[in-house]
Structures are given as C-alpha cells and as structure tokens.
Amino acid sequence: MPSPAPDTILFDGVCNLCNGFVQFVIRHDPAGRFRFAALQSDAGRALLLAHGIAPAIVAAEPESVLLLSAGKLYSHSDAVLRIAHGLGGSWRLAAVGSWLPRIWRDALYRFVARHRYRWFGRQESCMLPTPALKARFLP
C-alpha cells in the first residue's frame, strides 16, 4: 500500500513569523509528514488556482497559513490546529483549541496576522531552504 502524499503547508514567504512557524514544524516533524510552499512561489500559486483561490488576492496581503491535506484546503485556525495535530506527540493537545468556536479562534488568528509584520518583521524575499531541506519545499 503506497504511503499517503505529504500534507502541504502554504505560508507567507516574506513573513518572519510564518518562516519561524515553518522552522518549528520542520524541527518537530522528523518523519517529513509536511512539505512547504510559499504563497508567493509558482508552486504556491498553482496550488491556490487548483483550489479555486485567486493567487493575486492572497499574494497582495497573505493573512493565512493554509494546509492542503487529502485534497482539502484548510485555513486560519483550522490549518494551525490540524498542523499541530499532525506533528503528533504532545502537540496533539492543541486540538483542545478546536473546542472554542471557530469565530473566536479565527478572530484571534486574524488579529495576529494583521500585526505580524509590525511585531515580527518581514523579509525582502522568500526564504531559501538549505540543501538538506530542499526536498521538502515545492519549487
């Protein structure tokens, strides 16, 4: 039986908070369950188009980490909670957050997203993965 395709995390490639989140996932995902694509990359734009999302809208002001899992696209707090669950171990406890109404979770998510550049800064261009991690990033 073939192994399932890895889930893909789409992230704002110039956001320091988002890049830190990607590094966190990499550190806690030694099995390589997740792969990554910047929303600004060709691969990221192609995945957005394939799921009926206009890349220009997302690229203009990306506010969300997106998770593509088993052909379904998750956003905002749902994406973060599913990623934490996918990391396994004690990170599965983050699922407790799903007990809160989505409207509250997403309001908190959007608040942080609106202020992330001011609080954490941004880069001039998307991060480049190290040669050891290059296989986990979509081109």
Rank of each mutant, 00 (worst) to 15 (best):
S3E: 15
S3W: 01
A5H: 05
P6Q: 11
D7S: 15
T8V: 15
T8D: 00
L10Q: 07
L10G: 09
F11Q: 05
D12E: 12
V14S: 08
V14K: 12
N16Q: 14
N16E: 10
L17F: 15
C18T: 06
G20A: 05
F24Y: 14
F24H: 13
V25Q: 01
V25F: 02
V25R: 01
R27I: 00
R33C: 00
F36H: 08
F36W: 08
A37Y: 09
A37P: 09
A38K: 04
A38Y: 03
A38C: 04
L39Q: 05
Q40T: 07
S41Y: 06
S41D: 05
G44K: 05
R45H: 11
R45M: 12
A46L: 08
L48C: 08
L48R: 07
L49W: 02
L49Q: 15
L49K: 14
A50E: 13
H51C: 04
G52F: 05
G52Y: 06
G52M: 05
G52E: 03
I53R: 14
A54H: 03
A54L: 09
P55V: 07
P55W: 08
A56H: 10
V58S: 01
V58Y: 02
E61A: 14
E63H: 06
S64H: 01
S64D: 09
L66P: 00
L68H: 07
L68W: 06
K72D: 13
L73W: 03
L73D: 08
L73V: 11
Y74E: 09
S75F: 00
H76Y: 13
D78C: 04
L81H: 01
A84M: 15
G88E: 03
G89L: 11
S90Q: 08
S90A: 14
W91H: 13
W91E: 01
R92V: 08
V96K: 00
G97Q: 04
W99C: 12
L100W: 11
R102W: 02
R102N: 00
I103G: 00
I103C: 11
R105Y: 10
R105S: 10
D106P: 07
D106W: 08
L108H: 00
R110D: 14
F111M: 12
F111H: 13
V112Y: 06
A113R: 05
A113S: 15
R114H: 15
H115M: 04
R118E: 10
F120W: 06
F120G: 02
G121F: 07
C126N: 12
P129E: 03
T130N: 09
A132G: 09
A132F: 05
A132C: 01
F137V: 04
P139D: 14
